[in-house]
């Protein structure tokens, strides 16, 4: 009886060991740590990551998911695998720690650029704007992504305008607004903004840059007006002031360095006379 028991026991052990051995490779694939984390993360709806469930430890858990999300991102990027659940992960982090600025701005960048999830990126940044209403980075990133990915310059301009009103926003962010006008073809408004930047500039380098832009924008504005004038009237304007009188140009700026704009018929372009 004892001998039979020993044989049975041996067979069971061998069977168990072989089962473990053969299933090991599959198990490693299914339950590898990072994959398991993703499997877990995708099944956590962001509404369920309630910070109150974790007592005082929500913030530490947010740090933990932040660390894991970076590992997950690096790992997936290396394997060129899908990053579709990134938005879910960053939403969980920001549910646990609603003031985690990096999780919004950096998270939204990853969700948008690598996760190709514009909606998730936008939602994350808008959530950041609600939880961190004084932070300029959320509207700035919304503006920047609207400009970069969607070429929606009108929306981008509006978000940049919101960003510059927030405390601590760097002055250079304001430069994006005239640039959006440039992209929309509204060179005149952009030029007026650059004139304002020039007048408020605190150093020579900033003044130089603003002046350069005023010239570029003014030239574009006047060239566009000349093209429209020729198309409608069938001849070239006598001078640039005719464009203003006839309503084709909104105005000709007086450049701060005293130089003047003129139209060179031979070269068919607006030039600056120093």
């Amino acid at each position: 009886m004892k001998k039979l028991f020993n044989i049975m026991f041996g067979i069971i052990i061998v069977l168990l060991m072989s089962m473990v051995y053969f299933s090991n490779s599959q198990l490693m694939d299914i339950y590898s740590y990072r994959d398991k984390f993703v499997q877990d993360a995708k099944y956590i709806p962001r509404e369920m990551t309630n910070p109150h469930w974790l007592g005082d430890f929500n913030i530490i858990y947010a740090d933990f998911i932040w660390f894991e999300s970076l590992q997950y991102y690096g790992d997936r990027k290396e394997k060129k695998a899908s990053l579709e659940y990134l938005s879910n992960i960053f939403n969980s982090i920001t549910n646990l720690d609603p003031y985690f600025e990096q999780a919004y701005s950096f998270g939204a960048t990853l969700v948008g650029t690598d996760g190709h999830n514009w909606k998730g990126c936008e939602q994350l940044l808008k959530k950041g704007m609600i939880n961190l209403p004084d932070d300029w980075r959320m509207p700035f990133f919304l503006g920047f992504f609207n400009y970069m990915w969607y070429k929606n310059y009108r929306a981008a301009e509006l978000w940049f305008k919101i960003a510059v009103k927030k405390p601590g926003c760097p002055e250079r962010i304001y430069h994006f607004i005239p640039f959006m006008h440039f992209r929309m073809g509204d060179y005149y408004t952009g030029m007026l903004m650059w004139i304002e930047i020039y007048n408020n500039a605190k150093n020579e380098q900033e003044k130089k840059g603003a002046l350069q832009n005023i010239k570029v924008y003014a030239k574009k504005h006047l060239t566009k007006a000349i093209r429209s004038f020729i198309r409608d009237k069938g001849h070239i304007p006598e001078n640039l002031y005719v464009l203003v009188k006839t309503g084709y140009a909104k105005g000709i700026p007086n450049l701060p360095d005293g130089s003047k704009f003129y139209y060179n018929v031979v070269k068919d372009s607006v030039l600056i006379h120093k």
Binding site: D56, D63, F67, L70, Q71, F100, Q102
Partner: peptide
């Protein structure tokens, strides 16, 4: 050991640990 793996948020982790550990 997590200093380089937190992407600039290591200071936050240390503060969070310091404030949470006494509770634990």
């Amino acid at each position: 050991f997590l200093n380089n793996a937190m992407l600039g948020e290591y200071g936050k982790l240390v503060v969070d640990l310091e404030l949470t550990l006494p509770i634990l």
